[in-house]
């Protein structure tokens, strides 16, 4: 019985993701190309302004790829949480009319972000090859980093989606938090620009900062500062990972507690 259910859930999840993907760029001429263009355009602007004009990251080898990888991972997180936040409220029709596990709706929205990320990472890979950077064996660690961001995104999505059912302010608040997050995470500037010591240490506790730096270390250059080099202790990596897991746990519990009332509360 249990297995049968999970088979049903898998079928439903794939169908929801499929639909989501089909509908995402519905009516646009370029269609899926937009999912590649979005990070590339943002990259172009940030590259022009911050790298060419303001000369950020001039000491870092391959800074453009460094920047692009950061943007792609950030956008992944951005997409998961933004889509996750609105997923429950956006599917009132399903919530009120059919009996499907509610978490599937949240997870399906993050899975389509994950597919998007895969496409974007392919672009990063093409850039890597084009710019002649030596491919690093540590690149195989990248999926682990992606998994971390994915779990963080799902955890936050569960919390946000649940809260959003009752408090519609959440979407505005989250928008501001994301804006702030973009600047306090070392995405468009190298970590070395942050004063060493307290500030660097604090910033690196942010799971996204840790994940982005680790991804850069794994894929682009081993000169990247990571949380273990900032603290001088590789065990410190467990702190942001623990934060992710705690958020995921809180998200699951909160969502589970409230999910049965979604149909009435929306």
């Amino acid at each position: 019985m249990k297995q049968h259910l999970s088979k049903q859930n898998r079928a439903l999840l794939s169908e929801l993701v499929r639909t989501d993907f089909k509908l995402r760029y519905q009516g646009s001429v370029l269609g899926y190309i937009w999912s590649l263009l979005r990070p590339l355009l943002l990259f172009t602007i940030l590259y022009l302004v911050f790298v060419k004009f303001l000369r950020l990251g001039s000491g870092v080898p391959n800074f453009p790829i460094y920047l692009l990888l950061g943007i792609v991972l950030w956008m992944f997180f951005n997409d998961i949480t933004n889509q996750g936040l609105k997923s429950i409220v956006g599917r009132v029709d399903l919530i009120r009319k059919v009996r499907i596990p509610r978490w599937l709706i949240v997870v399906s929205s993050s899975v389509s972000a994950l597919i998007n990320l895969t496409l974007n990472l392919l672009v990063v890979l093409i850039f890597l090859l084009l710019s002649g950077v030596d491919l690093l064996l540590t690149g195989f660690w990248l999926p682990v980093v992606v998994l971390e961001v994915f779990l963080l995104g799902i955890g936050l999505s569960l919390i946000l989606a649940t809260a959003y059912v009752k408090y519609r302010d959440i979407s505005y608040i989250w928008e501001i938090i994301l804006q702030a997050g973009f600047y306090i995470t070392p995405i468009l500037y190298p970590l070395s620009l942050i004063p060493e010591g307290f500030f660097q240490k604090t910033v690196m506790l942010n799971p996204l900062a840790q994940a982005i730096q680790d991804a850069r270390y794994a894929l682009v250059t081993h000169q990247t500062d990571t949380i273990s080099s900032v603290y001088g202790n590789p065990m410190m990596r467990l702190v942001p990972i623990l934060i992710c897991l705690v958020l995921l746990g809180v998200g699951i519990l909160y969502f589970k507690k409230q999910a049965k009332h979604f149909a009435e509360d929306i």
Partner: peptide, 21 residues
């Protein structure tokens, strides 16, 4: 969903009722 074809809707609706592809 109005933006999906009849065929796609059949599969989506079926999945919501618990049938796989």
């Amino acid at each position: 969903n109005k933006d999906l074809t009849g065929r796609e809707n059949v599969f989506l609706n079926g999945a919501l009722l618990g049938f796989n592809r």
